[in-house]
Write a protein that binds this DNA or RNA. Structure first.
Lengths: 251, 251
DNA sequence: AGTCATCATGTACAATTTACACAATGATTT
DNA sequence: AAATCATTGTGTAAATTGTACATGATGACT
């Protein structure tokens, strides 16, 4: 079915896997809402998820780490492979080519590609968004306000969020979305943002403290408009114990 | 890193994705234990999971369905994509070539391949195991007795089982592992086999009946050595409702 | 000094999960 | 025909977990 199948090269002249790509859903948390990092393609108003190709010389997990590094500047990342997308018609190829022909070379474009999806949780405050060579903007979007994306990226995002929610329900996930020190309401709002529902603060606090994954500090967060909330940190040892098995946790 | 990159063909002369494969972990349940369908490579004593290549003309889900159909004869299948394996050194390539050089052509063999893993749950009694063109035996193995497998297939199997266990705990998965009519102890032993732990029969029965996914029939299973157990069936409507969303459920 | 939004906290009730033992069945043996 | 034996089927009480809910304390701002 594909018309052309040139041997693909990436830009370091590193050989890459043909017809295979990797897409990253990068979640951040700020101001009480979940955010996603999106890229705007050069000379267009079209947005997509960050992604890239997989080099012959790297593990796919490392490809995801590299792409994340390039887009966010972060080295310490929570990453999960969540699904591989391989429908024949993931999106309308002609439409994509017509939208992006000034950036991509239609001659070296495959009719079909399979994409491996990863999602990442990062500390919003430490990210320096960085466009790639196809794009001229890299920006956080509020999850609920994400526009129509190129390719099948809305579906990928939806599936990533679904996987994140599932994971959250049986594992503590927050580590990388919050700053090192955080308040209980911050953590609670993060859970609310991910799950998309309200949580009772008393029950939440009880549950989190009972699990032992956080340590209460003798410090409060000053400078807010109201009562200064107490600060907490994750108990890294306990946290890791609970995460035991399953997934890629780089720290 | 790969030395050769020929355009790969499969045997219907259908073009396939290069450097990409698909592996299936096919679970069955019989005689109180979980079983896995394995293939023995021609002229060797080496076993592997069933697998294959992905055609340019099919969705990856359909590739998995096709492979399953070819190995088991079954059309109605419960399938889940659970992970994509993409380490550089998933296994020792030279070792594989030396073991299988009489079956595979080392010239058309990639130095590296990425494999998409699916697991399937099938009704043991209805499967007709069927080797492929590289193998001369297709057989059920008891999960605990699975030998050392070719490639990284022991790891893939381990991850599949892990995913199945996770899924079992939030979805009623049994439908496809049991015959149409089954007894409560059979169902319980299936859960025990998957989870690898004992379950209290009174609590199990209570839970399953309360969930409403099974219907008690006015029939017992005769011919056993002891008291004839009652038969049950799944309530398909209820079952589907509970499965709502998430995953590939082919029926 | 008063106002106000936010933070911190405990108890009672409901729901769920866990632990646990014995009588009934029906094929097999004596 | 009676006894044996492995297996099936069933209920209750205790413990645990989850849920619902309201008020006083704080600290910046006016």
């Amino acid at each position: 079915m594909p018309k052309k199948r040139p041997s693909n090269k990436d830009f370091d002249n590193e050989e890459v896997f043909p017809q295979l790509s990797l897409d990253c859903v990068i979640f951040g948390f700020n101001d009480g809402t979940l955010k996603v990092l999106l890229l705007k393609w050069k000379g267009t108003e079209y947005w997509s998820l960050p992604g890239g190709l997989i080099r012959q010389s790297e593990d796919i997990d490392n490809a995801a780490i590299r792409i994340l590094q390039e887009r966010t500047g972060l080295g310490q990342i929570f990453l999960r492979q969540f699904h591989t997308f391989g429908k024949i018609e993931r999106y309308d190829n002609q439409k994509i080519i017509s939208k992006l022909s000034h950036v991509i070379d239609p001659e070296s474009w495959y009719d079909r590609a399979i994409s491996i999806g990863y999602y990442a949780l990062v500390d919003y405050a430490e990210v320096f968004p960085n466009p790639d060579q196809f794009t001229d903007e890299c920006q956080w979007w509020i999850l609920e306000e994400v526009p129509e994306l190129l390719f099948d990226h809305n579906e990928i995002l939806k599936k990533a969020l679904h996987s994140l929610r599932l994971e959250l329900s049986y594992q503590p996930v927050g580590y990388n979305l919050l700053s090192e020190k955080f308040t209980m309401p911050e953590m609670m709002r993060m859970y609310e943002a991910i799950l998309g529902s309200k949580i009772d603060p008393r029950n939440f606090q009880k549950k989190i403290l009972n699990s032992g994954i956080v340590i209460k500090l003798n410090e409060v967060k000053k400078g807010l408009a109201h009562k200064s909330p107490n600060l907490y940190m994750f108990d890294k040892v306990k946290y890791q114990q609970i995460l035991e098995g399953g997934g890629l946790f780089i720290i």
